[in-house]
Simulated assay, not measured.
Amino acid sequence: MKKIALLLCFAIIFGAQAKIIDKIAIIVNNRAVTYHELEKLYQIRSSELYRKYAGKELAEKLEALKKQVIKDKTDELLLLEKASQEGITISDEMMDNFIKGLMKQNNIENEEQFNNILMQQMGMTLKQFKETQKTQYIARTVIQQFVINKIVIDEAEIRAYYDEHIDDYKTPFTYSIQEIVLYYDSTTKLFVENRAKSIVEELKSGKLDFSTAVSLYSEASSKELNGELKNLKLGDLNKKLEEAALKLKVGEVAMVELPDSIHIVKLIERNEPKPLPFEKVRDKIEDKLRQPLIQDRIDKFMEELRSIYYVRIDVKPEELK
């Protein structure tokens, strides 16, 4: 999708800005792009290359970009023409809701503020921005409807991939513990160690319930959760504490000393990875198998449009400045 991504993210955005009458550079049926539009797009996209490259490499990148800009603008016109013939559009209400959503996400209070931000950052008005976003939506819809949706992956192939890569589709390993935390410093370490050992002995003998011990002795914030730390993943805890906890069987207790604290840990749950049901991952696998086919199908689709519509390109790459 990289080529189309460039088309949607760059080529369309700056097309709406050209208002002055200019020489026609590209024609697709009754749609046209001017030299001014192409040069504007080239200047915007080439600025990134100037920041990244120099010398011969820069020159090669710029020459390739000139060809790409012409291709992208031609593709844009082809997609818009196809959309027009198929009746694909977007309502003003949908666009207004989209703009309101963007404003809310970015804490923009009103359209005037949004307009000022767009002028500063993109050099376009809110009205122009709406038009470019509308064009983006239409172009994406054409590609989705006439390319991506038509790529059908055989059900047997999806199932076979699931069976062959079952390890990639498993629930994560998780575990849960209950802890009692006692803090110490250099003057209290011996006292705290002895208290911790005493607590462990009472727990193992059954004289003391772990939850009761948490309420009586734990000094950590986990005390408010009955000392429980649930659904932990590997790496969530201090390495020494994690290793000690995972050596336990469910229900067993261990004492772990860390700098400044002693932890009495009980393993209360251990969840080994299990295969996810096929139905839950089927669509994800289908998308994965579809991805390598998309660009080739897009290229073929665009070639088909070129063969159907009248296309005239009156600009050469070297003319772009």
Score class of each variant (00 low, 15 high):
residue 1 M to Q: 12
residue 196 A to N: 00
residue 65 L to S: 05
residue 106 N to I: 01
residue 43 Q to R: 15
residue 169 Y to P: 00
residue 308 I to V: 14
residue 302 M to G: 02
residue 148 I to Q: 01
residue 5 A to L: 11
residue 202 E to C: 09
residue 110 N to Y: 10
residue 87 G to P: 04
residue 289 L to V: 03
residue 277 P to G: 06
residue 271 N to H: 09
residue 42 Y to R: 02
residue 27 I to F: 03
residue 55 G to H: 08
residue 193 E to A: 08
residue 3 K to Y: 11
residue 168 D to T: 04
residue 174 T to R: 09
residue 112 E to P: 00
residue 234 L to M: 14
residue 203 L to A: 06
residue 216 L to E: 14
residue 285 I to T: 00
residue 115 N to H: 08
residue 214 V to M: 02
residue 233 K to R: 15
residue 66 K to A: 03
residue 94 M to L: 13
residue 61 K to F: 06
residue 135 T to K: 15
residue 201 E to P: 02
residue 195 R to A: 12
residue 55 G to D: 05
residue 162 Y to W: 07
residue 317 P to D: 08
residue 311 V to T: 05
residue 14 F to E: 10
residue 225 L to S: 14
residue 56 K to H: 13
residue 116 N to H: 08
residue 52 K to Y: 07
residue 252 E to R: 03
residue 31 R to I: 01
residue 315 V to W: 01
residue 24 I to N: 11
residue 204 K to Q: 11
residue 222 S to H: 09
residue 320 L to H: 02
residue 142 V to M: 10
residue 103 M to D: 03
residue 145 Q to S: 13
residue 41 L to E: 10
residue 317 P to M: 06
residue 142 V to E: 01
residue 282 R to N: 09
residue 232 L to I: 07
residue 29 N to Y: 03
residue 243 E to G: 10
residue 144 Q to G: 10
residue 77 L to K: 02
residue 21 I to C: 08
residue 139 A to P: 02
residue 87 G to A: 02
residue 91 S to H: 10
residue 274 K to W: 06
residue 213 A to L: 03
residue 82 K to Y: 13
residue 157 E to F: 03
residue 169 Y to T: 00
residue 255 M to Q: 12
residue 258 L to K: 06
residue 55 G to R: 09
residue 104 K to T: 10
residue 122 M to T: 00
residue 203 L to Y: 00
residue 268 I to T: 10
residue 4 I to M: 10
residue 311 V to P: 01
residue 230 K to C: 05
residue 83 A to G: 09
residue 74 T to I: 06
residue 161 Y to G: 00
residue 107 N to K: 14
residue 53 Y to F: 15
residue 222 S to M: 07
residue 173 F to H: 11
residue 16 A to H: 12
residue 100 K to Q: 14
residue 214 V to D: 00
residue 306 R to Y: 01
residue 7 L to M: 08
residue 315 V to L: 03
residue 213 A to S: 06
residue 152 V to M: 11
residue 114 F to R: 01
residue 235 G to D: 09
residue 217 Y to G: 01
residue 82 K to M: 11
residue 1 M to T: 13
residue 218 S to Y: 03
residue 147 V to F: 01
residue 132 T to W: 00
residue 51 R to A: 12
residue 294 I to K: 02
residue 184 Y to E: 08
residue 142 V to S: 02
residue 34 T to C: 06
residue 49 L to T: 02
residue 105 Q to T: 13
residue 71 K to C: 04
residue 117 I to V: 09
residue 252 E to M: 04
residue 181 V to M: 06
residue 321 K to M: 08
residue 218 S to Q: 07
residue 218 S to A: 05
residue 121 Q to F: 12
residue 38 L to V: 04
residue 49 L to H: 05
residue 250 V to N: 07
residue 173 F to W: 08
residue 108 I to V: 14
residue 236 D to I: 04
